[in-house]
């Protein structure tokens, strides 16, 4: 094999358990039985390969519609680096993001609440990282929204992130949040992660250096995908 990568088990406290009672639907969707050990085989060490040619170059910008109109809301950049557990930049990582609009409504048929849709905002973007593992999206800050079947419970503003790393083992989907929002502390999904430091890693950092003066705010979020080199590199 050309790329000798080791995949350690996820640290339990740094990932949410499947059963999170405050998040109601986990009560009927979390498996009861313990999970079985899966040998790490070639199946797990491989996965779909993506290149920058797979994604149209304009999909990094969610804030501009197909006809060139600007979406309503607070313009912002979301910027960061994707690494593995050795801190090595992860090239050719497909990142797909999606989010609600500034009023807290998704452009999705199932989201029928009475907040307005924005004809200039779909809320979906994609990029594939280059050699430096860097990604950057331009978007608008999403609104909070109330969750049906709960009593006055609102999801905090958040952006969904789907990541394909170098193999099946590093495939993951997560969400990121905004610093200082009081709804973060009430969020059953974010608070389902046991360790505070692991939760904090999903909260973006306000960082004017990745914004654009006079135009858009900047937020930074670095992401770490599972996998490290079995033999440390020397020198």
């Amino acid at each position: 094999m050309t790329d000798d990568i080791e995949y350690r088990d996820y640290a339990k406290g740094a990932q949410p358990p499947y059963l999170t009672p405050n998040y109601k639907s986990t009560k009927v969707r979390s498996p009861n039985k313990p999970q079985y050990k899966l040998p790490r085989t070639l199946t797990e060490a491989t996965g779909p390969v993506f290149t920058q040619d797979d994604v149209p170059a304009d999909e990094w910008d969610l804030s501009t519609s197909a006809t060139g109109e600007t979406a309503l809301g607070q313009l912002m950049f979301m910027d960061g680096v994707i690494t593995d557990e050795d801190g090595r930049p992860m090239a050719n990582t497909l990142i797909e993001i999606w989010q609600a609009n500034a009023a807290g409504r998704y452009a999705h048929a199932v989201d029928t609440r009475d907040a307005p849709l924005d004809p200039n905002f779909t809320g979906a973007g994609r990029i594939v990282t280059g050699e430096d593992g860097h990604y950057r999206f331009k978007t608008i800050r999403p609104g909070a929204y109330p969750v049906p079947n709960y009593e006055n419970y609102w999801r905090p503003p958040h952006i969904h992130i789907s990541l394909f790393g170098r193999s099946f083992m590093s495939r993951m989907i997560t969400q990121c949040y905004f610093p200082g929002d009081p709804l973060n502390d009430e969020c059953h999904i974010l608070q389902g992660i046991p360790e505070a430091v692991a939760r904090d890693r999903l909260v973006m950092k306000f960082d004017p250096s990745v914004g654009v003066n006079g135009h858009a705010l900047g937020y930074r979020l670095d992401l770490v995908l599972r996998g490290r080199r079995a033999t440390p590199m020397v020198g």
Partner: peptide, 16 residues
Amino acid sequence: YIPTAGQTVGPFYNYA
């Protein structure tokens, strides 16, 4: 470098 925590995909992903 600790792997980022997973979070639910939620109900509204299909258009993305």
